[in-house]
């Protein structure tokens, strides 16, 4: 009624009249429309009040969160009221949720206890240069001995050897660190190969293996000299090759400084970047 009253006596009178009439005669189509609109007004008012309250809650939560360090700001809040308690809980909840999210984002091992604490589930995140890639999971029994029961780690990753090398019974962290290093190195090599295929269409991949630990490429040097390039990734915990071999029919070329520079680039940089650098130098077409 708030809105109607603000429009003066006239509306009020007409409203009374309408009411009086509706008691006697049949409601007219316009009257039902009035009812409809009134309901809509009420609904909108409720919505508005809700949004206002929501906005207010947001602002208070913001203040609570930002004053995590500086607690003096909280003083003007009513200490005892139920709503301020809920607000505090909400702020803590959102803070903890964000912290957990941060843990995940920075690649922390995510641990979940299973079977009433008898075992644990661990996730290992992998990524390459800012792109998040596969997440791998391990389930471990901790009672009576630490033992890997299930996992989705690719079979070509030497899981058992890694588990033997780092003593699972004393420190699970060392094992997870090495495993994570191997997994990240693997997805890193795989991602490099993918990027190289995307960025260097003229380079032909002659051979590669599933572990991406060996790569044979064919590219063309100026004057149409075809070069065979063998990249060997012997250290499986690294993304970069341990050995680079270039091969071509023109023997003079193998002694050129350009050639040596290419070799060192391929050893120092990820393959797609090394090729970009070589292209810039004019070593590769």
């Amino acid at each position: 009624m708030e809105g109607a009253s603000s429009n003066g006596v006239l509306s009020k009178l007409s409203l009374l009249e309408v009411e009086a009439r509706s008691r006697g005669s049949h409601p007219q189509p316009q009257q039902s429309r009035v009812k409809e609109l009134k309901a809509k007004v009420e609904a909108l008012k409720t919505k508005r009040d809700q949004l206002k309250a929501e906005l207010q809650t947001h602002k208070l939560l913001q203040r609570l969160r930002l004053s995590e360090v500086n607690h003096s700001e909280e003083e003007d809040m009513d200490e005892d009221s139920e709503s301020s308690r809920v607000l505090r809980l909400m702020a803590r909840h959102s803070e903890l949720t964000d912290l957990l999210r941060a843990h995940r984002l920075i690649g922390g091992y995510e641990v979940v206890k299973t079977h009433q604490g008898k075992g644990v589930c661990m996730s290992i995140a992998t990524g390459y240069e800012g792109v998040y890639l596969d997440t791998y999971n391990l389930e471990m029994d901790t009672n009576p001995k630490v033992r890997i029961s299930r996992h989705n780690i690719p079979p070509f990753i030497p899981l058992d050897t890694l588990a033997e090398q780092s003593d699972l019974q004393t420190g699970i962290r060392t094992f997870l660190d090495t495993l994570s290093q191997h997994l990240n190195a693997y997805v890193g090599r795989r991602q490099q190969l993918k990027l190289m295929k995307e960025q260097h269409k003229s380079v032909e991949v002659m051979e590669s293996n599933i572990l991406c630990s060996m790569l044979v490429l064919m590219f063309t040097m100026p004057e149409q000299v075809a070069v065979l390039c063998l990249l060997d990734y012997k250290d499986l915990s690294r993304c970069l090759p341990t050995q680079v071999k270039l091969d071509c029919e023109d023997e003079k070329l193998t002694d050129s400084p350009q050639w040596k520079k290419s070799c060192s680039l391929l050893l120092e940089l990820p393959v797609h970047r090394a090729l970009t650098a070589m292209k810039k130098m004019g070593t590769v077409v």
């Binding site: 809105g3 006239l10 309408v18 009035v34 809509k40």
Partner: peptide, 9 residues
Amino acid sequence: ENTEELEVL
């Protein structure tokens, strides 16, 4: 008057 009210609403 109804029209009037409708407008207001």
